[in-house]
Amino acid sequence: MIFLESNLTLYRIFNSVAGTGNISRSSKELFISQPAVSKAIQTLEENLHMTLFIRSSRGVRLTEEGALLYEYTKSAFDTLKQGELTLFQMQELGIGHLRIGVSTTLCKYILLPYLKDFVKCYPHIKITIECQSTYKTLELLSQNKIDIGLIGKPDNLKGMDFYEVQQIEDIFVSTETYLNNLSLQLSKNTNNKASFDTKSATEILRNSNVMLLDEKNITRLYVEDYFTRNNIKTNQLLEVSSMDLLIEFAKIGLGISCVIKEFVQEELKSKELIELSLNPPLKKRAVGFAYSKEAFLPQSLKHFISFYKERCSS
């Protein structure tokens, strides 16, 4: 390859001389001597086996071949210059791209408040949100297809840095009407008139329409593990794709939904939804940001990590 014989320095000198049309001006522009400039041009011409400049007392003029080569070198060096400028802007202004993986639920209730304030501080950073389950987010992180993920902390975080931002508690909720009707039905079957709050959670869950997230969700696995450890069995199960739907289905009295307590505070306060008392209760879980320990951390990700750590500590 001819290019391998002619290093980038020769093309840089050629590009300068072609642009200025004068060896003396190029010498000053490049901070090298005129003989060095002339020698570089001569070497490049010898490597390419063609004349690139016509010399005269007024300076130099491109040959047809030289003019064609200059079109390419000018484009190449302009591109490099633009690349340097872009890098400088990224460093000075925080320009960059941040790819975040998160479930729909955590995106709505936890991530969005962070992003709202983050984009105010770093408006030049482009943000892409990939919505999927925690397990899919961890898979994309391991493949370096996203930069960071907001996840419920899994049992195994091998190769990942995890920073907790919040604790969440899983609870079962329904309307008071649904629970009272269920209690009346149970009382008819057992000739034992009692309200729902005097019946065991196990009995209520076994006889009600229980609504859970689909099987690919880490919350579903966490709840099923709780059921197994406490010997709780359900006869009627409805799988729902999102936390928002679980909340809405519970509010219309379709059954008992497993939801995150922190996300239904208003409904609990107004008693639109009633929390089912579990004994023992589901243990709280950690939610936080995770990223690969081995991945390269772009400047945009460093900004985001510093941002949420500072926000959590304040």
Rank of each mutant, 00 (worst) to 15 (best):
R58N: 14
S257I: 03
Y308H: 14
S187T: 06
T137F: 02
I305A: 03
Q185R: 14
D214Y: 08
S313Q: 13
Y11M: 07
Y135F: 15
A18S: 09
T198V: 10
K116E: 13
L115R: 04
D225G: 13
F304D: 00
D147I: 00
S277Y: 10
I232D: 01
Y122F: 14
L140P: 00
E262N: 07
G66S: 05
T43N: 11
S16K: 08
H49Y: 10
K283W: 01
S208V: 03
L115N: 04
G66C: 04
S200F: 03
Y178I: 02
N235I: 06
S200K: 09
I95C: 10
D78T: 14
S187Y: 00
S33C: 07
I218P: 01
S133K: 06
R206F: 10
L273A: 01
T20P: 00
Y291S: 05
Q82D: 14
K302R: 13
Q166R: 12
S57A: 12
S306H: 15
Y291L: 05
H97V: 11
S103R: 07
L62P: 01
L30Y: 05
F3K: 11
E248G: 09
A295R: 12
G66F: 03
A76E: 12
E84H: 14
G152N: 10
M50L: 14
L150S: 01
L141H: 00
K293T: 12
G159E: 02
N47L: 05
K158D: 12
R229L: 09
I95S: 15
L205C: 04
Y308V: 04
P281H: 02
E139H: 14
